[in-house]
Amino acid sequence: MTDRVTYYEAMGGHETFVRLVHEFYKGVADDEALRALYPEEDLGPAEVRLRMFLEQYWGGPTTYSEQRGHPRLRMRHVPYAVTPDQRDRWLLHMMNAVDTLDLQQELDDMLRDYLTRAAYSLVNTPGADGTF
C-alpha cells in the first residue's frame, strides 16, 4: 500500500465528479447554441461518458476505457462542428460547475487549466468571423 493520493482522491472522488458533471449539464440543457453539439435528446448518457472520462483522466477508475476504448478526445469530437463560440459556452458552464466544488486552490487551478486547454483543443470550425 502506498501513501500516494491521486488527484481523483484529493478532489473528493466519485461524488465530486458526479456533482461537477451534473452541474455542467444543467447549464448545457438550457443553452440552445451549445445543445446543438449533443445529438441525443437525453443528456444522461453524455453525462455518464464525461464523468467516466474525467474520473479516469484524474486517476480514478478506468471505466471509460473499459467500456469505450481509448479516449481519443479530439478524434471523438471530429464529427461535430465545434466553434469558438461553442467552446466559450462550454467553458462558461464548466467553470460555473467547478465553482460549486469548493476545491483546494491548487486543485481548482489544475482542473480549470486542464478544462480550458481541452476545450481550446477541440475547436475545429472557424467562428462567424473566420477565426478559430
Rank of each mutant, 00 (worst) to 15 (best):
D30S: 11
G12R: 03
E23I: 12
E106A: 15
L101P: 14
Y80P: 10
A81H: 00
D108K: 09
L34S: 03
V48K: 00
Q86T: 02
D31G: 10
E41L: 09
F132M: 05
T62E: 09
F132L: 03
R68K: 12
G27H: 07
G130E: 05
L122V: 06
L20C: 06
D129E: 07
K26C: 11
R35H: 05
L50S: 12
D129W: 03
D102L: 11
T116G: 15
Y57D: 00
N96R: 04
A33Y: 02
L122P: 07
Y7A: 15
V48R: 00
L115E: 12
Y57M: 01
A33L: 10
V98T: 09
L37R: 04
G27S: 06
Q56K: 05
M52S: 12
L91C: 14
S65G: 15
T116N: 13
R49L: 00
R117D: 05
E23V: 11
F24S: 14
Y114E: 13
A33D: 12
R68E: 14
F24K: 11
T83N: 03
F17P: 11
A29H: 08
F53N: 06
A128S: 10
G44R: 13
A128Y: 05
L50D: 13
M11A: 06
L103F: 06
V28S: 07
L103R: 06
T116Y: 12
Y120C: 09
Q105K: 00
G127N: 02
W58V: 07
R76H: 01
L103I: 05
Q56D: 11
E40V: 08
F24D: 15
D85A: 15
P79F: 03
L34Q: 06
L43Y: 12
G12D: 02
R68Q: 13
L103T: 08
L103S: 08
P45D: 08
L101D: 12
Q104L: 13
N96M: 03
T83G: 07
N124Y: 03
L91I: 13
E15C: 05
T131I: 03
T100L: 08
E32D: 08
L91P: 04
E47N: 13
T16P: 03
M75I: 10
P39I: 01
V98Y: 06
E47D: 14
D108M: 07
R76N: 01
T83C: 06
V82E: 02
V18C: 10
R35L: 15
M1E: 02
E47K: 12
A46S: 15
G27Y: 03
D129V: 07
V5T: 13
Q105W: 01
T63F: 12
L92Q: 00
D88M: 06
W90Q: 10
M11W: 01
M94H: 14
T100D: 07
T100V: 09
V82F: 04
R72L: 15
H93W: 01
A118D: 01
Y80C: 03
E15A: 13
A119G: 04
T125G: 00
F132V: 04
G69W: 06
D109Q: 15
E40C: 08
Q105N: 02
